[in-house]
């Protein structure tokens, strides 16, 4: 179980997290939604200890992680796996080396055992035959799959997903969603998914929490989310902008550019 208690974080002059309270039960799949810049990724990085809060507590199975030393925090992190938005595969290594890195570093498995485990993980994410390839020659969806294989190879209890479907075509995105759901059921891990893709949120979440202005403004099941009264949640689900995307003055400038020298150049 992960408990986040009154976490505050300032980045520069911007207060990104303004008192986050959230409890994540073991074995559940929670989706954290919110607009770009609402602090979702920052929150995720706090959970895994890549960022430290200015104030507040984060407890992983009762252990407060923000006051631990670097090495102690790394020990806690061995129970986590994380899928980054850009996959973050090590581009100096092959797919096989990427997936097997955690095993080679932290276990006493023989190279053959590591290889077998790597193959099994790649199979699980539906990616085989690319073991010897470099990340640079993989497509976006394949990179995410490989990164997911790397995250689950160390058999984590918690898997964190940072925008798993962003930048993928709808079919590949759906395949990734299926994969998250499948791994959740097969490996019985706790999944924490950060996304702004509502289709993905409804598909993979047992529970959905919405972040707005650095606070959790809503928590509930997908069904409750659909029926939510909160205007912010409603707007987010329907994808409606609250204000005009471009302030009038910018529109005016843009319009003026069309006349003047630009029209002359266009002729």
């Amino acid at each position: 179980m992960i408990e986040i208690r009154d976490v505050h974080k300032k980045l520069g002059s911007l207060e990104v997290l303004q008192g986050i309270d959230l409890t994540i039960q073991s074995g559940e799949s929670i989706v954290i939604i919110g607009r770009s810049g609402s602090g979702k990724s920052v929150l995720l990085k706090h959970i895994i200890g890549l960022m430290l809060p200015d104030s507040g507590e984060i407890l992983v199975d009762g252990v407060e992680i923000t006051h631990l030393s670097h090495d102690e925090r790394r020990q806690v992190r061995r129970r986590f796996g994380m899928l980054f938005q850009g996959a973050a595969l090590f581009d100096s290594m092959t797919v096989e080396e990427n997936v097997g890195l955690g095993l080679r570093e932290h276990t006493r498995m023989s190279p053959e055992e590591v290889l077998a485990k790597v193959r099994a993980c790649l199979d699980m994410v539906g990616l085989s035959g690319v073991e010897k390839m470099r990340p640079s020659s993989l497509s976006g969806g394949m990179k995410k799959r490989a990164a997911l294989a790397r995250a689950i190879a160390v058999e984590p209890e918690y898997v964190l997903y940072d925008e798993p479907t962003t930048g993928l075509d709808p079919i590949t995105a759906d395949a990734i969603n299926e994969l998250i759901r499948g791994l959740q059921q097969q490996l019985r891990v706790t999944s924490i998914v950060v996304t702004h893709d509502m289709a993905s949120a409804f598909k993979v979440g047992d529970r959905i929490a919405m972040l707005h202005d650095g606070k959790v403004i809503f928590q509930g099941t997908p069904e409750e989310t659909r029926r939510a009264d909160d205007p912010e949640v409603k707007r987010f689900i329907l994808g409606e902008a609250t204000e005009a995307p471009f302030p009038p003055r910018h529109m005016e400038i843009a319009a003026r550019r069309r006349t003047g020298v630009w029209r002359w150049l266009g002729r």
């Binding site: 990085k45 895994i48 890549l50 670097h70 090495d71 790394r74 020990q75 992190r77 061995r78 986590f80 796996g81 994380m82 980054f84 938005q85 850009g86 973050a88 595969l89 090590f90 581009d91 100096s92 890195l101 955690g102 570093e105 932290h106 990164a147 790397r150 995250a151 160390v154 964190l160």
Partner: peptide
Amino acid sequence: AELGTMKVTEQIDALETLAIN
């Protein structure tokens, strides 16, 4: 350049999440 690229593409963070210093 190599470490900088690793940093901005979150590869350093990825190492940390694998509990590697």
